[in-house]
Design a protein around this nucleic acid. Structure first.
Lengths: 260, 260
DNA sequence: GTGCTTTGTACTATAATTTAGAATGAAATT
DNA sequence: AATTTCATTCTAAATTATAGTACAAAGCAC
C-alpha cells in the first residue's frame, strides 16, 4: 500500500484493516462514523472504505443509521455470546458473582488472563446489576490490579520474570514498581489466598481479588470486589477479602479443582 | 475463487471469509477447531487457512489452546461491549428488566429489530440472573414472537406488507400463517399495548411482549416475559401483560418518548 | 524403538482481489 | 439558485491472496 517493494506478509492485511475499522468504531462511541471519517482516519480512499463498510454491513457486523453513520452491529453480540458460552468459567461463576455482589454491596468483576493483562468478562453491580457495560472487554495490566495479581501470583516463576522484564510503569503513586516489591507482594498473595489493589491502578479505587483454578490447578481467572476508596477502606478490604477468597474457591471447586 | 472469470465484486471476499470462519467457530462449540478442519470446511488450502488464523489470532479475535485448536477470542467481547454501550436502549432498560424479572419470577428478554427479525440483546432470569448466554445474539422472526409482533404492530403498513410477502411459514401448530390473521392480530396488539405469543414460535413456550418507543415515536425494541406453557398459562399471560406493557412504557419514557 | 500418518508452518509463482482516482448523482448547506 | 459534501460506481494498475509443494514435529501403529 505504501511505497516500498512489497515483502512477504504473513498475515492478511485486509482482515487486519477490517478489524482496525471495527476498533475505531468501538472507540468512537455515540453517534457513529461517516464513510468520509473512516476514509480519512485510515488514509484509504473513499471507494475502498465504501467496499469495506458495505461488506461489513452485509454481514451485520456494522449497521448504518438513516444518516449513513456506521456503528457496530448485532453480529458481534452473536459472536461474543458464543465466546462466553464456550468459556465455561463465565457460566459457572455467574451465580457466585451475584451472590457476592449482594453480600458486599459492591461491584464484582470476573476476569481471565490474556497475555500480560487480564480481560474483564463479567461484571455485576450491587444495586443496578448491569451486565455488559463499561469495563467488560477492557484489559488492565496484571502487576497493578487485584485481579491481575491474584492470577500472576500463581504463574510459574519464569512467566512472572517475563512480566517484570516487560516493565512495571507507575500508574499511580501507589503502584508497586520494583521487581523485589512485586515478588514480595505476590508471595503474600499466595499465602493469603487473595490480592489487594490499594489504588495501584487507579487513584480512588480499591479492589480485593482472588484466583480461580481449573481441574489442573492452573489459574484461569479471578474474581474481584471493587469500590471507591472512601467507602472501600483498607479495613473493609480486609473484611471482604475472606468472602472473595471463599467465593473464588467455590468457583474453583465447580471448575473441577480438587486441591483446595 | 471458483473457476469462472472474475466479475466485479462489490464486497470484500476476504473479509467475508474471515467472518465465515468466525461463524463456524461460533457454531462448532466446545473444543474448538483445528486448522485442518477449517481448511477442509471451507475448501481452502491449509496455507490460506493458516494465514487467516494467524491474522485473527494476532488481533485476539480468535485464540488457540495448547493443542492448536482455535476458538473465538476476547476481542469479540470488547467489540460487543462497545456495541451494547452504544445502544443506549440496553443501558436504559437494564434496571427495568431486573425489576420485571423479580416481580414476575420469569425470564425477561430485551430485543431490537433487525431486518425481518428481532435480535435478543439482553436476558434476565428470575432465579439465576444469567447475563450473556443462551439466546443473546440469536434472531427470531417477527411474525411469530411476542417481541417481534410488539414491534411489527407499530411499523408502517408497507413494511408489514413486505414482511407478509416474505412469507409466514408455520413454526408450530399455533403459528399465525394467514396475512389476514396476522393483520388482525397486529391490530389487537396496537389496541392492547402488548403482544402474546401462544406457542407460535416454539411449542411449550408462551411469551408476553411490549414495544419500546424512542423520542420520535419509533418502535426501537421490545421487552418480553416468557415461560413454559404449563406455568405460563394463558390466564397468567394476561395477568402479566399490563406489567410488561407498563415496564416497556417506563423505558420508552426514559428513551424520550413523550406520546404515552 | 521404527515407520507411518497427520499436524502446523514456510516459501514461491500465479492468479485474483484490492486499490486509488475520477466521475456521477443526490442531498444538504450557503 | 449555486456550491459543497456526501455516498456510490467504474476501471486500470498494483498489491495481496491463493494453492501447491516442501519441511519439521508430534502422534500413532506395529
Amino acid at each position: 500500500m505504501s511505497g516500498a517493494l512489497a515483502n512477504q506478509l504473513k498475515t492478511s492485511t485486509t482482515v487486519a484493516k477490517a478489524f482496525a475499522i471495527l476498533d475505531f468504531l468501538a472507540s468512537s462511541g455515540e453517534g457513529g462514523s461517516s464513510l468520509a471519517t473512516i476514509s480519512s482516519q485510515f488514509g484509504i480512499s473513499k471507494s475502498t472504505a465504501h467496499r469495506y463498510m458495505t461488506t461489513l454491513e452485509e454481514l451485520a457486523v456494522v449497521e448504518r443509521d438513516a444518516k449513513d453513520h456506521f456503528r457496530l452491529g448485532v453480529k458481534l453480540i452473536e459472536l461474543a455470546a458464543a465466546f462466553l458460552s464456550d468459556h465455561s468459567l463465565r457460566n459457572v461463576a455467574d451465580p457466585f458473582l451475584h451472590e457476592l455482589a449482594i453480600r458486599t454491596q459492591e461491584t464484582v468483576h470476573l476476569a481471565i488472563p490474556f497475555g500480560d493483562e487480564v480481560v474483564y468478562i463479567a461484571k455485576v453491580e450491587s444495586s443496578h446489576a448491569l451486565g455488559l457495560t463499561s469495563r467488560i472487554g477492557a484489559r488492565v495490566p496484571m502487576y497493578c490490579t487485584a485481579l491481575g495479581k491474584a492470577i500472576l501470583a500463581h504463574y510459574p516463576a519464569e512467566r512472572i520474570e517475563e512480566i517484570i522484564r516487560a516493565g512495571l510503569p507507575a500508574r499511580t503513586l501507589h503502584t508497586i514498581t520494583s521487581p523485589e516489591g512485586l515478588l514480595r507482594e505476590l508471595e503474600q498473595v499466595r499465602a493469603q489466598g487473595y490480592a489487594i489493589d490499594d489504588q495501584e491502578n487507579e487513584l480512588g479505587v480499591r479492589c480485593v481479588g482472588a484466583p480461580i483454578f481449573d481441574y489442573i490447578g492452573k489459574a484461569v481467572g479471578a474474581i474481584s470486589v471493587s469500590g471507591p476508596a472512601n467507602r472501600m477502606t483498607l479495613e473493609r478490604s480486609l473484611e471482604l477479602a475472606p468472602w472473595v477468597r471463599d467465593t473464588a474457591l467455590a468457583v474453583s471447586k465447580r471448575m473441577g479443582c480438587r486441591r483446595l
